[in-house]
């Protein structure tokens, strides 16, 4: 088993490396380089060449790649093409905001999804199950911003319960921050939970089809007890897998939600960077998000390996 885990970790490292090469190549193939963008159209060839030399753009691509990735590893993320501030300083105060929001979303959505998925699996085909399954199907099929604008319209504008814009000055206490962030958190919880509830339900129903559950049914164990004592324990592995996978979906979710609520997080910074075509900033943010994504998927895979007793004792 540990060999498999080790193999997965190695594959994960290779994927992160592939991602970094992809990001680097994609952002380097365009004709106008960082020097061109910074100096604009009127730049003289001499000043361009000078700036290229200063930024190291006159070196060969592999050399540039290794210096970029090397600097990245020691936390030197480069200089923003717009404004010339270091990217660490731009990211520094944003990353905490994103982590804060996603942490709260995780704390709410994981127990919520497991409980709702369990309830749906306990009463398959009954009214409550049908409400949960059709509700989540609908939520999966609509864009994230659709959920967001409905919540804004009804909870913030029509009812006035919560603020529509999530501006943090940094001096709020914990509960005040949560209140200000109620809408983006709510939206993300809804979006992420929909997927998790469906997969939890499917995972438990899948276990319910196995022979030992049939045995338990035949000897007369009540259905609730079967689910809580037999099925749930065996579904923990798949459920942990689902949770990690969905936290990976959060990576895409925050991009939309931070934009719509003008929340000063890392994803908003990246979207702004794409708009101004600030390549070094996009590279750095892209690496952070993609690495997080690969790591979460890696955790999902490891969870399903570790939780599978058959793999624990290889023949």
């Amino acid at each position: 088993m540990w060999q498999m885990v080790l193999r997965r970790i190695l594959i994960g490292l290779v994927l992160i490396w592939v991602v970094s090469v992809f990001i680097f190549i994609l952002t380097q193939v365009l004709p106008g380089d960082a020097a061109q963008i910074r100096l604009g159209q009127q730049a003289t060839p001499e000043s361009l060449a000078a700036l290229r030399k200063e930024l190291g753009l006159d070196r060969s691509l592999p050399v540039q790649y290794f210096s970029w990735i090397g600097n990245l590893l020691i936390g030197n993320l480069g200089i923003s093409a717009a404004g010339g501030a270091t990217i660490e300083s731009l990211i520094g105060n944003r990353i905490g905001n994103t982590v804060f929001m996603t942490a709260i979303v995780t704390l709410i959505s994981v127990p919520l999804s497991v409980v709702l998925g369990l309830i749906a699996a306990m009463f398959p085909g009954r009214l409550i199950d049908r409400v949960i399954t059709s509700g989540t199907l609908g939520l999966i099929a609509v864009p994230d911003f659709f959920v967001a604008i409905f919540l804004i319209l009804f909870l913030a504008v029509q009812l006035g319960w919560v603020p529509a814009v999530s501006y943090l000055s940094g001096s709020e206490g914990f509960w005040k921050s949560v209140y200000v962030l109620a809408l983006p958190i709510g939206t993300l919880v809804i979006v992420v939970s929909a997927q998790m509830i469906r997969m939890t339900r499917a995972g438990i129903l899948n276990v319910m089809g196995s022979p030992y559950i049939e045995m338990a049914i035949l000897k007369g164990v009540p259905r609730k007890r079967i689910i809580l004592r037999h099925a749930l324990l065996n579904a923990i592995g798949p459920i942990v897998n689902v949770i990690a996978l969905n936290l990976a979906y959060l990576v895409s979710g925050v991009v939309v939600i931070e934009t719509i609520f003008a929340y000063p997080g890392l994803a908003k910074l990246m979207v702004d960077g794409v708009q101004t075509r600030d390549i070094p900033l996009v590279q750095a943010c892209g690496m952070i998000f993609c690495t997080t994504y690969v790591v979460l998927i890696l955790i999902a895979d490891i969870a399903s390996i570790v939780s599978n007793p058959r793999l624990r004792h290889p023949k």
């Binding site: 994927l15 592939v18 991602v19 992809f22 990001i23 994609l26 952002t27 193939v29 365009l30 990976a248 979906y249 990576v251 895409s252 991009v255 939309v256 990246m270 979207v271 960077g273 794409v274 075509r277 600030d278 390549i279 996009v282 590279q283 892209g286 998000f289 993609c290 994504y293 690969v294 998927i297």
Partner: peptide
């Protein structure tokens, strides 16, 4: 294909659009 799938779709979109418009 594994390499393409190791990106969140929206991230790949953002990076490509940043580079190519």
């Amino acid at each position: 294909v594994d390499a393409v799938l190791s990106f969140p779709n929206i991230m790949l979109g953002l990076i490509v659009i940043a580079a190519f418009g």
